[in-house]
Simulated scan of single mutants.
Amino acid sequence: MTRTPSLFDPVEIGALKLSNRIVMAPLTRNRAGPGDVPSALAVEYYRQRATAGLIVSEGSQISQQGQGYESTPGIYTAAQVEGWKPITRAVHDAGGRIVIQLWHVGRVSHVSLQPGGAAPVAPSAIRAETKTYLKGGFADVSEPRALETGEIAGIVADYAAAAKNAIEAGFDGVEIHGANGYLIDQFLCDGTNRRTDAYGGSPENRTRFLAEVLAAVTDTIGAGRTGLRLSPASPANGISDSNRQVTFNAAADVVGRFGLAFVHVVEGATGGARDFIPDFDFAEIRRRAKAPYIANNGYDKALAEAAIAGGRADLVAFGRPFISNPDLVERLRRGAPLAPLNRDTLYGGGAHGYTDYPPLENA
């Protein structure tokens, strides 16, 4: 008789052998140093959370053009690669596994962050109704310009170069950020993609950029070390689409061609209602993507255990609970209470609210 799988069972996804099915979701903390190099504090931050079966790092821009928020780390310069090495080493020494989230924000940026103060880029010149983090506070994003067709191949190449840098920095793989209204999501959705070239119009055309990025990254580091994050039903950063099920079924069909290590899906509105689109069929996305499925958004222990035991997910990602509970895996295992989150220290700052949350035995 086959035993029902548990949240705490080991699992193998692609080339990654994980000690449990609990994933630390990517969490932007805005604490990178000069040159957008990860800070020394990040070594301890990630080491403390290495009991997760898999850590997905905070979003890390693939180029200066890909940056949307102040003090987020990159993975495109030699100094940034060197800055990540002690972090990946610390996680591995603690028995963990870590992938980096490769990020291009597209239109969700500000001219002050762009090369030469240029306008952010997007599939179409449609401004996002959202804000970015600048100088310790929040400000409206800038008006974007539409990418020329001839520029797109260069961005695809930036993803591949960033993936190569990630392996050099010691990461076990990468998660391509295709969610939450950033560049790949902007190409996928018809509310932000009004192009008339080969990258716009039909779902097949709107998924072309995603397909090219997946091909470039998997050719560079292998499909077994490549994952993708999608948010098929989320309105994050002002993203919209006229028929999300059709669009993301098409995107999942593209994913299914590559044999990825995982697909990481935000179920519902990012950080909000799981039933934002009540009839959205996430199981269909999983079926078409043909990859281990990481479920994300609003999971507690009971919901996560039910998803694993019922075969609705292969792994479950937790986000903000990992901020205030560095030993979240042990707390979930024991059924212990979770420490509250200090929202005032989420973005920017130093060790306070970052590396000083105590483990259970010291709480």
Score class of each variant (00 low, 15 high):
3 R>V: 14
7 L>P: 03
8 F>P: 04
9 D>C: 09
15 A>M: 05
15 A>V: 04
20 N>T: 07
23 V>K: 01
25 A>T: 12
29 R>H: 11
30 N>L: 02
32 A>S: 15
32 A>M: 12
34 P>R: 09
35 G>Q: 10
37 V>W: 08
37 V>H: 11
43 V>P: 02
46 Y>W: 09
47 R>V: 08
48 Q>V: 10
49 R>G: 11
49 R>F: 10
63 S>I: 03
64 Q>L: 15
69 Y>V: 04
78 A>D: 15
79 A>T: 04
81 V>H: 01
83 G>R: 00
83 G>A: 08
86 P>Q: 04
89 R>H: 10
89 R>I: 01
91 V>F: 00
92 H>Y: 01
93 D>M: 05
101 Q>K: 10
105 V>D: 01
106 G>P: 02
106 G>V: 05
109 S>F: 06
111 V>H: 02
111 V>T: 15
113 L>P: 02
115 P>E: 07
117 G>A: 06
120 P>K: 01
122 A>H: 02
125 A>C: 06
126 I>W: 03
127 R>Q: 14
127 R>F: 00
128 A>C: 14
128 A>D: 08
130 T>E: 07
137 G>M: 04
142 S>M: 10
142 S>F: 04
144 P>M: 13
145 R>W: 13
146 A>D: 12
147 L>R: 04
154 G>I: 09
156 V>P: 11
157 A>P: 07
160 A>D: 09
160 A>E: 03
161 A>N: 13
162 A>E: 04
170 G>F: 00
172 D>K: 01
175 E>Y: 00
176 I>H: 01
178 G>W: 00
178 G>F: 02
179 A>K: 01
184 I>T: 08
190 D>E: 06
194 R>N: 10
194 R>P: 00
199 Y>D: 11
204 E>A: 15
204 E>S: 13
206 R>D: 13
214 L>Y: 08
215 A>H: 12
216 A>E: 07
237 N>E: 13
243 N>T: 06
244 R>I: 05
250 A>M: 05
252 A>Q: 03
253 D>T: 14
254 V>F: 03
255 V>K: 00
257 R>V: 10
260 L>G: 09
261 A>C: 11
276 F>M: 05
283 A>V: 08
286 R>P: 09
289 A>G: 11
291 A>V: 08
300 D>S: 07
304 A>L: 08
305 E>S: 14
306 A>N: 08
309 A>H: 02
309 A>T: 06
312 R>I: 00
313 A>K: 00
314 D>R: 03
323 I>H: 00
324 S>Q: 02
325 N>M: 04
326 P>D: 04
334 R>C: 05
334 R>N: 08
339 A>E: 11
339 A>I: 03
346 L>C: 09
347 Y>F: 15
355 T>L: 12
355 T>N: 14
358 P>I: 11
361 E>I: 06
363 A>E: 15
